[in-house]
Nucleic acid binder design. Structure first.
Length: 305
DNA sequence: CCGGAACCTTGTTG
DNA sequence: ACAACAAGGTTCC
């Protein structure tokens, strides 16, 4: 059983770009659209010119306006971060890359899986976990599994998770689910808390470091000022924003043989929040998405200088 | 608090 | 063919 609905767009959205931009790892192409499991639903999405068609299986609620943050005032955000010529150019070159508003549990799990990993495998691992622990839902594309609940995952065994191909992350996922279930943290309640509190709370969870905490804050907990720093953003900053960093931080970023210490990470992300303002996360999203193009080095990096 | 190594697995590279 | 390396980092020492 399903219902079909459509949404007329009055704000830029590029569905495919947004869903495949590594903010989330639960959507796969099917036919001319995308299918994904989130909450109590399996959702199929199809974009035409100015319309999003969506079909919701499983009886749950799902709202594209919420998920794609179409309720944000896009012009205001663009104006806010568009003072930066690089970001402005990126947005103009391809409008419609949106920041998602995901379920915090799902987002947290997927980003714990994302550590020291690549997009394709993260998607595969997520689907494996869904298949092993999520309820089945019938769709016209066959049976699809829901995203597993916190409860079902906390009852998993380590071996089952290893069987999903999570590798050494299996232990983090299990500890994470159990830590949350023990009641230490209510993720939903974090939505209303300020950035610093959200960050420090998430950092206390197993498998969660500064980068994952920032991603979860940005993509599921309303912290639009969050500016996650991964290897690609690191290169973008060293390459295009050295003047913001200062001599010391620039040299630390530039030397990729070393990973970022916690204090360095914090210092840099703080600088970027100061620079871009309350919508720094939108700017980060643009810079990340285009990072491979922006970094000349990205194409020659393998030639081991 | 800081620096460095180890870490599952898969796909790509030379 | 096949060893080496990278992939949206975190943990442990």
């Amino acid at each position: 059983m399903y219902r079909t609905d459509s949404l007329a767009l009055n704000t830029p959205l590029n569905l495919g770009v947004t869903l495949s931009s590594a903010q989330t790892f639960q959507w796969v192409r099917r036919g001319r659209g995308w299918i994904g499991a989130t909450g109590d639903s399996v959702v199929y999405l199809l974009q035409t010119q100015n319309t999003v068609l969506f079909r919701v299986y499983g009886g749950g609620e799902w709202d594209p306006v919420s998920y794609f943050r179409l309720d944000d005032d896009y012009p205001t955000i663009i104006r806010s971060i568009g003072f930066d010529p690089i970001v402005r150019r990126l947005i103009n070159s391809q409008p419609g890359l949106r920041v998602t508003r995901q379920d915090p549990w799902e987002c947290l799990l997927m980003f714990v899986l994302s550590t020291n990993n690549n997009y394709k495998r993260i998607v595969k691992m997520t689907l494996n976990v869904n298949r092993a622990f999520g309820k089945k839902v019938e769709t016209e594309f066959g049976v699809v599994h829901l995203f597993p609940t916190l409860e079902s995952l906390s009852a998993a065994s380590l071996q089952e998770l290893v069987g999903c191909g999570l590798g050494y992350r299996s232990k983090y996922v299990l500890e994470l689910a159990r830590a949350l279930r023990e009641g230490g943290v209510d993720l939903g309640r974090l939505r209303g808390k300020p950035y610093e509190e959200v960050r420090s709370t998430l950092l206390g969870l197993p498998g969660v470091g500064p980068k994952v905490a920032d991603c979860v804050s940005l993509f599921s907990l309303e912290k639009l000022e969050s500016f996650p720093i991964d290897t690609w953003i690191r290169r973008v900053l060293a390459e295009l924003y050295p003047h913001l960093l200062g001599e010391h931080l620039y040299r630390v970023l530039k030397d990729e043989s070393k990973s970022l210490g916690v204090s360095v990470y914090q210092a840099i992300s703080q600088k970027m929040r100061n620079y871009f303002g309350v919508y720094a996360g939108y700017a980060q999203n643009q810079l990340y998405y285009h990072s491979k193009k922006l970094i000349k080095k990205g194409f020659t990096r393998r030639s081991k200088s």
